[in-house]
């Protein structure tokens, strides 16, 4: 029995379903991310777990207990809101103590708990600060502390780093991961930032148009995406239409049109593919190399990124350029070589 169990949950407001028959299992203590473009239903799913929205159908259970009829104030979840929702009329201490008042703790115990969590989020000594005197990063920490101090079973984070600038965001990513390890609470993060999802989480669910496309650990998601949407959403990917010609032992042979006949490991094909199927051949830019021979093309554009550069290579017979990541090629016409074991076969969407 998993810790957070979402079974066949659907939700629509007016029009097509925002969350469509979602199934998801999250383990205790896991750092789990819901990743997807805006409007994919990830925030709605999070709000249903928190209790702010009610599923049209399906059940949400936490630690074996069905949550559908439980109001938000009685759920074992706490949320870090995208806007942080810091209470403007309370100072930092009272914001954090807000969810503890009901427990009627002795004063010194309450103080000790708040101060411990202030130390965890590195806001020591700022308890007396008024809400409107906080920087963006501090507000984020107060929101986190306020949710963490309740020691509930699941912490829900709705784009918690979205409002911070890039450097602060990167620093907070490292800290968020460290805090999660320290407190050991299950974290469920909603984000549209693939880098954030990949660097923070134990596992990631990629959502698209209300559905979950793939649930996997970050490495699998990057190296073995299950479909075009996942592959395209996470990092850059080159796609080529191809036909499956032969599967012989551990090697599959495909006819990739302008790329010619290519071979790849049979395990890199999506399950259930048959000979003569139209498939989508995908490869990351860093697995395409400039070589002495191979597919001929011209560099149409290049972007210098420091360690390596990005190139758009025009290839005859193809409208989209091929993305290549690596060091600069010799001047003039180039030839492209594909690392066979990094080629993957995805179901064709046409």
């Amino acid at each position: 029995m998993s810790f957070l169990s979402i079974a066949n949950v659907s939700k629509s407001f007016s029009g097509p379903p925002v969350v469509n028959d979602v199934r998801l299992e999250v383990a205790r203590g896991e750092f789990f991310a819901l990743l997807g473009p805006s409007g994919c239903g990830k925030t709605t799913l999070l709000r249903m777990i928190a209790g702010f929205e009610t599923p049209d159908s399906g059940t949400i259970a936490i630690d074996g207990e069905a949550m559908n009829a439980v109001p938000p104030n009685l759920r074992p979840t706490n949320m870090v809101f995208q806007s942080y929702a810091i209470f403007p009329h309370l100072n930092v201490f009272d914001n954090i103590a807000y969810g503890l008042r009901k427990l009627k703790l002795p004063k010194d115990q309450l103080r000790a708990r708040v101060e411990a969590i202030l130390a965890t989020v590195r806001l020591d000594g700022l308890g007396g600060r008024a809400a409107d005197q906080l920087s963006g990063g501090q507000r984020q920490r107060v929101a986190l502390a306020r949710a963490l101090v309740r020691e509930s079973k699941i912490l829900l984070l709705d784009e918690p780093l979205g409002a911070l600038d890039k450097r602060l965001r990167e620093a907070m990513q490292v800290e968020l991961r460290a805090i999660q390890r320290k407190v050991g609470i299950t974290f469920l993060l909603v984000t549209h930032d693939q880098e954030e999802a990949l660097s923070l989480s134990d596992r990631v669910a990629v959502m698209h148009q209300g559905r979950i496309l793939q649930v996997a650990d970050p490495r699998t998601l990057y190296e073995r995406p299950s479909c075009r949407e996942v592959a395209g959403f996470i990092g850059e990917m080159n796609f080529f239409h191809a036909t499956l010609r032969e599967i012989a032992g551990e090697t599959a042979t495909v006819n990739a049109g302008i790329l010619g006949i290519l071979t790849l490991p049979a395990v890199n094909l999506a399950p259930g593919m048959k000979i003569d199927d139209h498939i989508l051949l995908a490869i990351r830019p860093e697995h395409v190399r400039f070589a002495a021979s191979g597919v001929a093309g011209d560099v149409a554009a290049s972007t210098f990124l420091g360690e390596r550069s990005h190139f758009h290579v025009k290839v005859a017979g193809r409208s989209e350029p091929v993305f290549v990541s690596g060091s600069a090629p010799p001047a003039g016409a180039v030839h492209l070589e594909f690392t066979p074991e990094k080629l993957i076969g995805l179901p064709s969407d046409s």
């Binding site: 928190a50 702010f52 104030n73 929702a85 209470f87 807000y98 969810g99 306020r146 309740r150």
Partner: peptide
């Protein structure tokens, strides 16, 4: 919502 979330 935050107040509800925090138990009120």
């Amino acid at each position: 919502e935050a107040a509800s979330d925090l138990g009120d």
